[in-house]
Amino acid sequence: MTEPATAAAPAPAADTGARAIFEADGIVKRFGGIQAVDGATMSVGEASITALIGPNGAGKTTFFNLITGFYRPDGGRAVFAGREVQGRPPYMIARLGMVRTFQITKALSAMPVIDNMMLAAPNQPGERLRNVIFRPAASIRREREVREQALELLEVFNLAKLADQYAGTLSGGQRKLLELARALMTRPRFLLLDEPMAGINPTLGRRLLDHMQRLRAEDGVTFLFIEHDMEVVMNHADRVIVMAEGKVIADGEPHEVRADERVIDAYLGGAKVTPPGADGEGASE
């Protein structure tokens, strides 16, 4: 289980017409009077890199919370790899291989960086009490493997030398990277990233994007990421989905979406013009 999955990665990479790994149909969420997500429908192709964009308050973060089990939708269906996921608890969805990060980073501050990483590894028998007591050797063996993987991944994100520091001592950008690296430790099939580039420096941002491309190409990992930087979206996404006021208003290749009237309206029509990357309103809690 240490080698990257191959059986699960048959997808022809850049083909946006590939079969969908994830589909959402009419997802609805109300908060009191606010219709935060209002019948969002979309599908995400397997092994694609799809961007989810939209003005502040469009409901993107809420949509993530709904499909990863953090909120219960008031209506609609979400299917990942042939399984309905709406209404399941977050940990089950994560174990299916659908893993998300948070807009407001959730570094586990009072734990060392390496523990943050090792925590995320799947199939650790030592996370079960009875294995801890009756099969300690299996747990220790797995720990060794996991530690190696964690250090490799930290290397990619320039965090290896901080491995033994408490995560709370990291800078904001480093925490963002740590959260990403941690999500990758779970060996996800489908990674949902809520504004992954926000607050990290451009060089590391590039590295991150390269790494995403490589994971997609080598392991067939699918990405859905919320992003405000149009440059990044246009250059790195195979497809772009646009949300506004809780609905999906456009969906297509980057150049198509860029020309779409409705998208321009959504961004410029409303009173609130969104400076790219300045979405500070977090609803991830």
Binding site: P90, Y91, R100
Partner: peptide, 15 residues
């Protein structure tokens, strides 16, 4: 310990 630090983060990682 992860739950102590941030329960949602732990849940998002499959715990």
């Amino acid at each position: 310990r992860a739950i102590r630090e941030d329960e949602d983060a732990a849940r998002a990682l499959g715990k």
